[in-house]
Amino acid sequence: MAYSDKVLEHFKNPRNVGTLDKSKKNVGTGLVGAPECGDVMRLQIEVDDATGVITDAKFKTFGCGSAIASSSLATEWIIGKNVDEAATIDNMEIVEELALPPVKIHCSVLAEDAIKGAIRDYRIKNGLPVEEEVKAH
């Protein structure tokens, strides 16, 4: 199966790979997927408490090229966004941007869940209201 140029580009030059200090109160971590399923994504955000803007984001992903590209793209999209705004990112936007084939849609779902998970963790840590459970797939 051939990958789209955008997937290849993100795979070759992944943005924002790394780890943020999870002991910091303004850092939220989302860890989704499972090793048995062949995909694990960890996405972290650092938030400016005063403005609610995501100032930094990092990811690490165990998975195929599409999973890595989806998480790389997700970090790129959320940096600079307000937390509430970032929470509205839909997996289908990632599918479109990366031209993911149907068998790879679950990669984009994971990326969406990872963003939501990181935001949820940040909100819990800071005593902010949390939306309903991350939807299960």
């Binding site: 997927g33 399923c37 995909d39 694990v40 992903t61 869940d113």
Partner: peptide, 24 residues
């Protein structure tokens, strides 16, 4: 492995079998 969160966790000595992974 540099990109892999579970490699990082393994290196930190976290027991991966004890983590509650989300189902997909």
């Amino acid at each position: 492995r540099e990109l892999s969160p579970i490699w990082e966790m393994y290196k930190e000595g976290i027991d991966l079998s004890k983590i509650e992974w989300s189902e997909h």
